[in-house]
Design a protein around this nucleic acid. Structure first.
Length: 421
DNA sequence: CTCGTCC
DNA sequence: TCGTCTGTCACAAGACGAG
DNA sequence: TGTGACCGACGAA
């Protein structure tokens, strides 16, 4: 998931869009969070068993995994006590074009499965660990568990018709939440006004989070929204391939110079930069003639399969389809988000009876949750004015760098201005 | 702060 | 030569609190 | 899965 190298490119080229702020500055905010991503992280990270023995998921009496419940429960309570009101957004059906990507992932899973079997045979604990983590997936069961947990906690849950990031961005655009909380830079491509990263509690004391501002992205890169989407596609997204030989620097330069992908393809030297076939479906025969290298170590018996999948949409360039997914993604519109008091009794039953949690801990945490809910539903005094916002340390770094690169920067700036005005 | 525990 | 891209590798992805 | 560090390849200056 995500846009390859976008975070780095932004910190280099548009540092003003990034800010490091204290967690406290989000007090009183509503934030949309990609649930599937969080669940995945919990499944991987929340394990038991010290060094020298096989790490194992937390489980209830029936042997069902409870790691995700543990993680989700703790984190949600923490959000609430920090005065943050989370809404968790679940993935719906992945778009068709993503199937290439999904097939690749399945193949990798199967490989890991085999490797795990071998490692078990050999009793290689470390290898078992590694491979079993590769097999982790947030399945239906885990999603349902978390939906139930969150509902009992009184936290709103939204199931997206398609991609969660797109839905979260839509909530943010509609003003229903302040920001999208995710590590996935896709959210920016979906034009979420604010993106919050590192919304986690690794260092409990001085927890800083990173915010990215969509308008400042556009401003800083000095390109339009449509150009930004094209840029993201060229950097590399889940929906299609990229032009070989074009990295972040070149992609930005080309988009600034030519305005869109069509013009870029027309203009660039196609021998030097290999445009994927799927981007120019009408030119297949021409491309086949080029004596370019196709033996890149990785064999691709999947080529025929890929052709079979696209079929009816074969004549639409892949980047056009990707564009459409970013700009017209299917989302739910009339949503009401309500944070309710938790259903203490049922919640305790669920956690203790079904999931095997410790009664006292659960009671304790439910009290915390209730206290936090109470505090949150009081009239809000936003803490903005009390906590100054610190500029992104990277900004200073790249500012210094820009001084050093003054000559180069000047050229870029003058280009910006001519483009913009 | 590090380390062990949560289930 | 310098910048840029690509491949490869290693590594880490939670939260909490007792001591 | 993805991200960063490192490195060799390659084209531009």
């Amino acid at each position: 998931m995500g846009i390859k190298g976008l975070a780095k490119l932004l910190s280099d080229e548009a540092p003003d869009c990034i800010r490091e702020v204290e967690l406290k500055s989000l007090h009183g905010r509503k934030i949309a969070i990609d649930a599937s991503m969080a669940i995945y992280q919990f499944l991987i990270a929340v394990r038991s068993g010290g060094p020298n023995q096989q790490a194992t998921m937390l489980t209830n009496a029936e042997g069902e995994t409870t790691s995700h419940i543990q993680g989700m429960f703790n984190r949600t309570i923490r959000y609430m006590t920090e005065g943050i009101r989370p809404v968790f957004v679940f993935d719906g059906k992945p778009p068709d074009v993503k199937s290439h990507e999904l097939i690749k992932r399945r193949e990798k899973r199967e490989k890991a499965q085999a490797a795990l079997a071998v490692a078990s045979e050999e009793g290689n604990v470390e290898e078992q660990d590694k491979q079993s983590k590769r097999l982790v997936r947030a399945g239906t069961k885990e999603n349902e568990d978390c939906r139930k947990l969150l509902t009992l906690m009184g936290v709103p849950v939204v199931t997206a018709p398609c991609e969660a990031e797109a839905q979260a961005a839509a909530l943010c655009k509609a003003g229903l939440v302040y920001a999208t909380g995710t590590e996935d830079m896709d959210a920016l491509t979906f034009a979420t006004p604010i993106l919050v990263r590192k919304l986690t509690f690794a260092n409990a004391s001085k927890s800083m989070v990173q915010t990215m501002n969509y308008n400042k992205v556009i401003e800083g890169l000095a390109i339009s929204h449509d150009q930004f989407v094209d840029l993201c596609i060229m950097l590399g997204c889940d929906y299609c391939d990229t032009i070989r030989g074009v990295g972040p620097k070149t992609a930005l330069k080309l988009i600034r110079e030519h305005g869109n992908i069509e013009k870029v393809i027309e203009t660039i030297d196609r021998k030097k930069f290999v445009v994927p076939e799927s981007w120019v479906p009408n030119e297949k025969k021409l491309d086949a003639q080029s004596d370019d290298d196709d033996e890149e170590g990785v064999e691709s018996p999947s080529k025929e399969e890929n052709n079979g999948i696209v079929d009816t949409e074969e004549l639409i360039p892949a980047y056009v389809q990707a564009r459409k997914l970013f700009n017209e993604h299917e989302v739910l519109n009339d949503i009401e988000l309500k944070w309710k008091p938790c259903q203490a009794e049922d919640l305790q039953k669920f956690l203790v009876d079904d999931m095997g949690f410790n009664v006292d801990r659960v009671k304790n945490n439910i009290e915390k949750l209730q206290a936090a809910y109470k505090a949150n539903s009081k009239p809000q005094t936003r803490m903005d004015s009390f906590f100054a916002v610190k500029a992104n340390p990277n900004a200073a770094k790249s500012a210094a760098k820009r001084k050093a690169d003054a000559a180069k920067a000047k050229a870029a700036v003058s280009k910006k201005k001519t483009k913009k005005h």
